[in-house]
Simulated scan of single mutants.
Amino acid sequence: MDLYDAIDRLIPEEKSYIILKFFVDLSFKEISEVLSISESTVKTRYYRILKKLKVYLIEGEV
């Protein structure tokens, strides 16, 4: 499984964090402004989503 397949497995809300961070290259502060939530919430959700992507990618290698 490649990264794009793993991203496709995410729910739309989760995809938005990845897209804003990696493809639009926004900072956590900028993402928090776009989504109207605190910066700490953005970081927490972002790192949780990264863990989920890692699991998807590892599962795909088997």
Rank of each mutant, 00 (worst) to 15 (best):
S16E: 12
S38F: 04
I31H: 00
K29V: 05
I7V: 11
V34P: 01
D25S: 11
L10E: 08
E13A: 14
E30A: 10
K51I: 08
V55R: 13
T41L: 11
S38W: 14
L50S: 06
D2E: 15
K52G: 02
K54F: 04
E14M: 05
I7L: 06
V42E: 00
I11V: 10
Y56P: 01
G60H: 07
K15C: 03
Y17F: 08
D25W: 05
R45I: 03
L50T: 04
K51A: 14
R48I: 06
K54A: 11
V62H: 09
L3V: 13
I11P: 02
V55M: 13
K15M: 11
T41S: 14
S36K: 11
R9S: 12
K21V: 04
E39R: 14
I7S: 02
I18P: 00
L26V: 04
K54E: 06
F22G: 09
Y47L: 13
K43I: 04
I18C: 05
S32Y: 02
K51H: 09
F23L: 11
L35M: 13
S36E: 04
S16R: 04
Y4C: 08
E39D: 15
D8M: 09
E61Y: 10
S38E: 08
P12I: 06
E39P: 01
S16G: 15
L26S: 09
T41Q: 05
V34I: 05
Y47K: 08
I31R: 00
S16P: 15
D5N: 09
L57R: 01
S40C: 12
D25E: 11
D25H: 07
K15Y: 03
Y56D: 02
S32V: 09
V42Y: 00
I18N: 02
K54C: 07
L53G: 03
I31A: 01
L10N: 02
L26N: 10
E13W: 10
V42D: 00
V42N: 00
K52L: 14
E33Y: 09
V62A: 08
E59D: 12
K21Q: 03
I7F: 03
V55C: 05
E14F: 03
Y56W: 14
F28L: 12
V62Y: 06
L26C: 10
L20Y: 05
Y47A: 14
K51G: 08
S38I: 07
Y47N: 14
P12W: 04
I11K: 05
I7A: 02
L3A: 12
Y47T: 07
D5Y: 05
E61P: 02
Y47E: 10
V55D: 15
K15D: 09
E13L: 06
E33M: 15
V55H: 13
K51F: 11
V42R: 00
R9A: 12
I31Q: 00
D25P: 04
L20D: 04
I49D: 00
I49V: 07
E13S: 12
V42W: 00
S27M: 15
D2N: 14
F23A: 09
L20M: 10
G60Q: 10
